[in-house]
Design a protein around this nucleic acid. Structure first.
Lengths: 359, 359
DNA sequence: CTGTTAGCGCCTTCAA
DNA sequence: TTGAAGGCGCTAACAG
């Protein structure tokens, strides 16, 4: 038994499909009070549910918002997803989720799939990459997005523009001041820290990571500190853990020397990495902040109960998702969106125990 | 400029739309080698993307899987979502996400929306509730689901059957042995703990929570312990925090008495609550496990680096999502699904430092 | 193996 | 205000 159709409802109510359509959906036209009631009853008794596919086909719009993330189980993306969901609900739309693992090739697939479904808009949440190996992927992704926009689609990207994208109509970028915030973080840390700094970054070419690294170095420089060494590793917990092991070995080696080794302050470019690094240090018998300080970035909610409390930069992840989504919604195509994208997002340096100077 | 259509491609290639359709999609028929190439080129040069809505309308199936969660930012659901995503990808389908906050009324809305989109299957991940206030909501939700199944939809529910649902065709339940695992957890804890136990549970009527509470009490009883007092609170971090504050006050009060107060072992029915409770104790100057032991449930990945390491029950969340999704997929409609649902899911009691007896 | 003919369920002119 | 007709883009039966 297939779901009942509008035609069936109309027949049962003794009206034409057109009329039934008008009453069951918000047409500009008012249907006759009495007729409307009859139709509604018929629909009810049949358990009528409009076929969104057919509606979409007819109106060429789907009420769908596509969301692209690297990994929905990563709390960073999960938080953004929540914001997207909320904004979607405001717009009475549904969210289509695509998890890509971060590669532009897969992102391109996702965009194509969204385009096929005629998603009204697409939100891309993962960090952009400009690594050589991603060059072709980026080009294709950009082409796909351009086409999507040209066909009337709305795109919002969190962080950086998609490398190579040229679309201008319907293409929005939600800027996140990663660099500036990292700079502020470095300043804040430098004030209370005498020793050296080390940065644990993601792979070179990951734009978000690069921004944070760059900003951090700038901050150090302005504070008159010498630049931090940068360790490149995976942009996730296990990357942080690996780097942590390496640093732990180094710290322990330095310790055995004659002079009292100055403590290290580790800046991991995101909280998840920082937690990984902290776990590694701990597993090597080192304590934070006694043997080394550590700071992260993002201020992931689930991680706030971690001890010692992690110094980090608070990012309004949920807002970011919300704003990105809204920027693609009706009425936000120009000034408002630009405004929100340009200066709506701010973060806040949050110094906690993990970087306290007193051991 | 609208996206190009199959008809346009066909025209450009000098063939009929039907033929174009056959080559561009996997029809059972083989197209002529040469003709196929021409069509593909035409499609390519036009940047043709099939309209999934139209395809869906024609085939009355959408390639969509609907996922219903309470909150996508909750790591429990995020982990399940990841599993669902993976399984969806295997089936070459996309995931539609609905966040409901846990109310059956909103879940019903979500099911209706999925039905409207002609989702091939629906996965419901949140705990069921049998509270009085949810009675009507449950009834409506059940009705909606029944209708959906009657129309050929596939439904998978994680944990418990939807209260009141009678559908049998296409209705799958992925059982999670919450009660048994909680019982095992209690046994394990009782072995190394002399003091009393307290359970921090969710609101009464939340089935998952109730199962865990019940199982825990059973385990205590079998171990010859007296039943634990049960505190009811919110099924989330802040609920755990509140309960933690309350318990902290009690512990501190007991301390000031004459006799040395025996330590308490707190079982929070999920990890997130446990972390909240731990944070509350800490904020009151108490230490774990010195002043109180604490255990959770789920073994949330992001929380594994928490210290003291949290005793908990490991649940294969990602697998659960995957299995639920697969059970709705092609070929799994009967025995296999039943098998997986009946005994596929197992957990593992994981005792860590947070419940160590030695202070 | 290819082309033609009907719809899938709905919306939207247009005429009544 | 209501109904009739056409089309959204594609697939699935037929016929050639």
């Amino acid at each position: 038994m297939a779901a009942s159709t509008l035609t069936e409802v109309a027949r049962l109510a003794g009206v034409s499909p057109a009329t039934a359509s008008r009453v069951l959906n918000g047409s500009a036209r008012k249907p006759g009070k009495d007729i409307a009631e009859r139709v509604r009853q018929a629909a009810d008794s049949l358990g009528y549910i409009p076929n969104a596919q057919a509606q979409g086909l007819a109106k060429s719009s789907s009420g769908l918002i596509g969301l692209i993330v690297h990994d929905i189980a990563d709390p960073y993306f999960a938080a953004i997803a929540r914001g997207v969901q909320e904004a979607a609900r405001e717009q009475r739309k549904m969210v289509l989720l695509a998890t890509t693992g971060g590669g532009p090739a897969e992102e391109k697939e996702a965009v194509a799939a969204f385009a096929a479904r005629r998603a009204d808009s697409i939100v891309i949440a993962g960090s952009r990459s400009c690594r050589d190996e991603d060059r072709d992927g980026n080009t294709e992704l950009a082409a796909e997005l351009d086409r999507y926009c040209r066909n009337g689609g709305q795109v919002a990207v969190v962080g950086h523009p998609v490398v190579g994208a040229t679309a201008t109509e319907g293409y929005h970028v939600v800027k996140v001041p990663n660099q500036e915030l990292a700079r502020q973080l470095a300043s804040g840390l430098a004030e209370g820290w005498d020793g050296d700094f080390v940065v644990v970054g993601g792979p070179e070419g990951l734009l978000t990571s690069d921004d944070r690294v760059r900003g951090f170095q700038e901050g150090l420089e302005r504070a008159g500190r010498r630049p931090a060494e940068v360790l490149r590793t995976g942009f996730n917990r296990s990357g942080g853990y690996d780097a942590g092991l390496q640093l732990a070995a180094r710290i322990k080696a330095a310790r055995s020397g004659e002079a009292p080794a100055p403590r290290l302050c580790i800046f991991a470019v995101n909280d998840v990495m920082a937690i990984g690094a902290a776990a590694a240090l701990r597993s090597e018998g080192l304590r934070i902040p006694r043997d080394a300080a550590i700071a992260g970035f993002d201020d992931i909610e689930t991680l706030r109960d971690f001890r010692p409390a992690l110094s980090t930069v608070r990012l309004p992840l949920e807002d970011i998702g919300r704003i990105a989504t809204r920027s693609t919604g009706p009425g936000n195509h120009t000034e408002e969106a630009q405004g929100a994208a340009a200066d709506g997002i701010t973060g806040e340096v949050t110094l906690r125990r993990s970087t306290e100077a007193a051991a």
